[in-house]
Amino acid sequence: MIGLELLLLIFLVFCAIATVLCKRLISSIIIFMAYSAVMSLVWFLLQSPDLAITEAAVGAGMTSLLFFLTLQRINQLKGLEQDEDNTKR
């Protein structure tokens, strides 16, 4: 059990560093999504099912969706179709 906990926690730290260091914004948001999903597993290990449900719906769903939509709006403002960072969803 402690092995699983350590694995998840190390994954959390790894994800956080990768989110910050990632060059492309869209990739870093996807990594943040994975971070939230793993965080909901950690809540479950801490015996808090309420938090696990909320984190899975809010952290992995809503927050990253808002980030994606903001990026999409921003790229639309750029008026560039051939931009590399285009958020094709």
Partner: peptide, 14 residues
């Protein structure tokens, strides 16, 4: 980058 700053704030929250 402002979006990265917001992600950092979320990391602090969690």
């Amino acid at each position: 980058n402002l979006i990265k700053k917001i992600i950092g704030l979320n990391l602090m929250d969690t």
